[in-house]
Write a protein that binds this DNA or RNA. Sequence first.
DNA 1: AACGCTTTTTGCCAAATGGCAAATGATTCT
DNA 2: AGAATCATTTGCCATTTGGCAAAAAGCGTT
Lengths: 189, 189
Amino acid sequence: MKELFEFMLRFGNLNQQQMDFISSKAVEMQLPNNAYFSEAGKIARQVGFVVEGIVRVCYYSNKGEEITKYFIEENNLVVDLESFDLEICSSAYVQAVTDCTLIVFSKKDWQELLQTIVGFETIVHKIISRALMQKVERRSPLVTEDATTRYLKFMEIYPTVVNRIPLSYIASYLGVTQSSLSRIRKNIR
Amino acid sequence: MKELFEFMLRFGNLNQQQMDFISSKAVEMQLPNNAYFSEAGKIARQVGFVVEGIVRVCYYSNKGEEITKYFIEENNLVVDLESFDLEICSSAYVQAVTDCTLIVFSKKDWQELLQTIVGFETIVHKIISRALMQKVERRSPLVTEDATTRYLKFMEIYPTVVNRIPLSYIASYLGVTQSSLSRIRKNIR
DNA sequence: AACGCTTTTTGCCAAATGGCAAATGATTCT
DNA sequence: AGAATCATTTGCCATTTGGCAAAAAGCGTT
């Protein structure tokens, strides 16, 4: 829990009573490697916080290729926003790519927190906006570059991720085949 | 102004008095083709709403290539969020790519609106989250695909933009050279 | 150590895209 | 209309990347 509050307090203030209330709704959860946190075709009903491990959001193209939209590292919220907010079916999978420890809140509890704790909505919005901006900032530089540059930038953008997950996931994030990425890695060192 | 309120009311409620207050702070502004709304190296101090025209956000790579991060069409807010919120220098240019009509608010007025109008903060956050999600959704499918598919997807994603702006801007968004995009266009029809 | 399974690397060739420069087309200004 | 400027198209060739299949390496289990 400590990590969660350290994280939240960077975006606004919470007193002890408020934190206790949040704690009372929080559930710690182990998500083993490859397990899904939420799935395409279902409606997201949980908000999570990654305490330990890495999660990715991915989907499948019409050619059956697996495409990784982005990774979520330690100390970030994980929630399929569109599905969660609008209660529509998701088109993406949220999957653990290492063994993970999460703190999760049910939708009902989360909404209660939002309504009860003054300023919590603002904190959450700041967190979400920042995360979304970060996703845009991480994606945009990749489209224009060739595969090698994309990989180099990936290493800068996700330094804590590169060496903890299989090459195939990185390839599916960068839009490069595994083979090409393997060759690129070889050429770099 | 009508368009602005139609837009805002899709995200929450505002009574007449509140709308009048918003109107009192709004300034209509013409932004001719190619003019900048905000610039790299400066701090964004305005929030805009695109009434008519198309705006893009772009920056320059270390090789001097111009890279378009995204386009903003009619009936959307335009604001360099990171710079505006955190008061740090922006790294991007926000530029008109057609003649534009905007409604703008100064930072001071905007903050006054946020503090005074109950529920306005929530509306604004919803608008911004939606816009950011849209940017992510529009970008992700592009990385993985070949250039032709990217262009086809671009036409789906930005149907109202394709035929109103120069090919070079689209190329710089898709990460393709002008020449290649020109050939792609030829092959499609 | 040996086996099965998954991930990564490699080779070969084809296809896609970039770089550069010139040609063509469009637009604006005089 | 003609000149100047800018945007788009095209040709030619080099480079990058993909597709496919096989080999090698890594890992956990017995």
